[in-house]
Design a protein around this nucleic acid. Sequence first.
DNA 1: CGCTATTGACTACAGATGTAATCAATGCGA
DNA 2: TCGCATTGATTACATCTGTAGTCAATAGCG
Lengths: 122, 122
Amino acid sequence: MSEKISEAELVVMEALWEASPQTANDVADRVMATRDWSLQTVKTLLSRLMAKDVIAADQDGRRFLYRPMIARDDYVASETGRMVSRLFGGRVSPLVAQLASQDQLSADDIAELEEILKGLKS
Amino acid sequence: MSEKISEAELVVMEALWEASPQTANDVADRVMATRDWSLQTVKTLLSRLMAKDVIAADQDGRRFLYRPMIARDDYVASETGRMVSRLFGGRVSPLVAQLASQDQLSADDIAELEEILKGLKS
DNA sequence: CGCTATTGACTACAGATGTAATCAATGCGA
DNA sequence: TCGCATTGATTACATCTGTAGTCAATAGCG
């Protein structure tokens, strides 16, 4: 439903998911901790996110307080689904097999996965 | 290293990963089985993939035989890694937890995952 | 041997994206 | 009250992407 969020826009979304609502300046501060962008750039991205209806803003005096309209979990879920279907034919185990073969799984990961599976089988 | 592959370009890559080498026409036939694109569009995408050095072409008479320069597995691995780090802070178990919570895991998936984990613990 | 069909190369063009500069309104301090 | 600083809105512009059309070379057919 909601329109596509670009890479740069996602960085701004992350800042808003960390805390909200925030002013444009607050968001920019957070973003600029990792990206070397100007304040204007962040504001432009905020506008585009507004246009895409994935964030909203409430007026607070002369500025706006921005907040996400979609939950990070929902975004993550849909992106994950898209990736699994695009790259793994919709199957999850090949994904995990893939990660396993790349040694991407730590001992902790393995333990946690076992827990998850245990829970699912009940 | 290799440049970013766009959505449309990826469709062409998939056709080349299915079989290679192939002429532009062969690739287009495969692509057009799922996408309503023109032959020219597929050729343009082939050129862009050439420019990005992710495919190569060997002359065969008056046409070219195209072939991928990167393995699908490598592409999938790097895309998966990017996603895991972008969306899950580099941890895999939250990813699986995510999928589990969305009921994306079939009984077969669960069984396969157990097998995979068994193999990893040895 | 000239014409046509094939095939790659070049050009086109609108919309998305990354990255900002500039404009305009307005509220606050001097 | 007036100018400056703050903040959102508008405009800019190069590149990438999606989606082709057109041109040019050439090889095979008649």
